[in-house]
């Protein structure tokens, strides 16, 4: 255990190293570049660490998949347009059940937008490209959680063989604050191509992403979806904050959920009955838990830095479970401060 002062990007890098990551492929993009640069520096001092700077994000994703097939805990970090470009290899990772870890620092969009902050990559990161979006997405809210969930992502990926994403943002990556490094237990990697659990000796593993018959693919997907559902209950995480007697329940995720916490503390000091439901996994979403909690709530307020990408998930999760009034506060690609949230609480309560 060691408490240090670090930026979010420092904490992400440290978590990956502590989790035993052995390979990073990437193409620099703000606000995640320091991770690539930090890995390059670490790799220059430790020959067991592989670093490949690729020509673009698609190649980075494919390169990391190659590393995983050969037995490296490989990972990638990107943002914004890089997240878009990387979706082709990440769809392949889904198809082949490759335990890749992906760090996403959301920035403002569309297109180049800003290098600063947004929550506009929720749909893209949760669902990805073609396919069913069988991918775990964590949404940490502060630097400590960045460290904790990046570390955890490697264990979850190598346990369940689904791609794991840490959906962060530019604020989190660039903030300097305290963090405690408490390296836990990490699972050792193994070459996926020679996975003894799947194969008899001497057999070759033919990982496929291409099928001739629709029924063939249908069967594979059925099994993958069944695995996903079996896993979902075990990995779903959420946090409840002052919910017990709340009349107004806020739904928020990531760093915005932390701004909401600060606002709720101020509101509570004024006697306002407001609480927070905050999914830590955006995928799988804590559907059961959110439905249970909204039952006796009078008003719901969903807050996000995009135009309803997160709110749509909330609405679909709680559909039919509550008669509460539903409000939304959207600020696409802009930071949301505790002060603004407090104003909204006072407006709706």
């Amino acid at each position: 255990m060691k408490k240090v002062l670090a930026t979010g990007n420092d904490a992400v890098l440290r978590a990956a190293l502590d989790a035993g990551a052995g390979m990073f492929c990437g193409y620099p993009i703000t606000p995640s570049t320091e991770i690539l640069a930090g890995w390059a520096k670490a790799a220059s001092k430790n020959k067991n660490l592989v670093f490949v700077q690729t020509e673009d994000e698609a190649a980075a994703g494919f390169g990391a998949i190659g590393g995983i097939l050969a037995g490296k805990k490989a990972w990638v970090a990107t943002a914004g347009m890089g997240n878009v470009i990387m979706q082709d290899p990440l769809s392949l990772a889904e198809a082949m059940r490759i335990p890749i870890v992906v760090y996403i620092a959301q920035r403002g969009g569309p297109s180049t937008g800003t290098v600063i902050f947004s929550q506009q990559e929720v749909v893209l990161t949760r669902h990805g490209g073609n396919g069913e979006g069988l991918r775990i997405v964590y949404s940490p809210g502060n630097i400590q959680e960045l460290y904790d969930y990046v570390f955890k992502a490697f264990n979850i990926a190598w346990k369940y063989y689904f791609p794991v994403f840490i959906l962060s943002d530019g604020y989190l990556g660039k903030t300097l604050s305290e963090v405690t490094y408490h390296q836990g237990k990490s699972m050792p990697p193994h070459p996926i191509m020679l996975n003894e659990h799947r194969l008899a000796a001497g057999q070759h593993l033919n990982l496929r992403n291409c099928y001739s018959l629709e029924e063939e693919l249908g069967e594979v997907l059925k099994k993958q979806i069944a695995d996903w559902e079996k896993m979902s209950e075990k990995v779903t995480e959420h946090e409840e904050f002052y919910v017990k007697d709340a009349d107004l329940l806020i739904f928020a995720h990531g760093s915005v959920s932390q701004a909401a916490k600060a606002a709720i503390m101020e509101a509570r000091a004024k006697g306002l009955k407001v609480g927070l439901f905050r999914p830590l996994t955006l995928s799988p979403f804590p559907i059961k838990e959110s439905r249970k909690i909204v039952k006796n709530i009078k008003k719901i307020l969903t807050i996000e830095a995009s135009l309803g990408q997160f709110s749509d998930i909330v609405k679909s999760a709680i559909f039919g479970a509550t008669g509460a009034l539903y409000f939304e506060f959207f600020k696409p690609a802009e930071g949301i401060t505790p002060e603004e949230i407090l104003e909204k609480i006072e407006e709706y309560l």
Partner: peptide
């Protein structure tokens, strides 16, 4: 900004620093 934060950390306080990095 950064040095203020480093000092606060040394003094055992909670602290955050974020640049406007646009």
């Amino acid at each position: 900004g950064k040095t203020l934060t480093v000092g606060a950390f040394i003094a055992g306080k909670h602290t955050t620093f974020i640049p406007n990095y646009g």
